[in-house]
Amino acid sequence: EVHFESHGEEQAMRVVKMLKKRNLTVEVKVENNKWIITAK
């Protein structure tokens, strides 16, 4: 499981795309203006 924190939507979306290319399940949450990305 991979956790990634991002402060910007643009950066977060880039990471999500990259993770999805690896056929991982990606969950995105926004907490306290931080984008929290979890990949399994």
Rank of each mutant, 00 (worst) to 15 (best):
E1C: 14
E1I: 13
E1M: 12
V2Y: 14
V2E: 07
V2S: 06
V2W: 15
V2R: 07
H3V: 14
H3I: 14
H3N: 08
H3E: 06
F4D: 04
F4M: 06
F4A: 02
E5I: 15
E5A: 06
E5K: 05
E5N: 05
S6C: 15
S6E: 12
S6L: 15
S6D: 02
S6T: 14
H7V: 11
G8A: 13
G8D: 15
G8S: 15
G8N: 15
G8Y: 15
G8H: 13
G8T: 15
E9R: 13
E9P: 11
E9L: 13
E10V: 09
E10F: 05
E10M: 06
E10D: 10
Q11C: 15
Q11F: 10
Q11V: 08
Q11R: 07
A12P: 00
M13S: 05
M13V: 06
M13Q: 08
R14L: 10
R14S: 07
R14D: 07
R14W: 07
R14I: 13
R14P: 01
V15H: 03
V15W: 11
V15F: 08
V15K: 04
V16P: 02
V16Q: 01
V16H: 01
V16L: 04
V16E: 04
V16T: 02
K17H: 09
K17F: 14
M18K: 08
M18Y: 12
M18R: 10
M18V: 08
M18F: 08
M18T: 05
L19G: 04
K20E: 15
K20P: 06
K20R: 09
K21Y: 09
K21G: 12
K21Q: 10
R22N: 09
R22A: 13
R22F: 14
N23I: 04
N23R: 10
N23E: 07
N23W: 14
L24W: 14
T25S: 10
T25M: 11
T25H: 14
T25R: 10
T25G: 02
T25V: 12
V26K: 00
V26S: 00
V26L: 04
V26W: 03
V26F: 07
V26R: 00
E27V: 12
E27G: 03
E27D: 09
V28G: 00
V28F: 06
V28R: 00
V28P: 00
V28D: 00
K29W: 10
K29L: 08
K29N: 05
K29G: 03
V30N: 06
V30Y: 14
V30D: 01
E31F: 07
E31S: 05
N32F: 05
N32K: 08
N32H: 06
N33C: 11
N33G: 15
K34E: 03
K34I: 13
W35Q: 01
W35C: 07
W35K: 00
W35L: 07
W35P: 01
W35Y: 08
I36A: 02
I36Q: 04
I36S: 03
I37L: 01
I37F: 01
I37V: 10
I37Q: 00
I37A: 00
T38F: 05
T38H: 07
T38R: 04
T38Y: 04
A39Q: 01
A39K: 00
A39F: 11
A39D: 00
A39V: 15
K40P: 03
K40G: 05
K40W: 14
K40M: 11
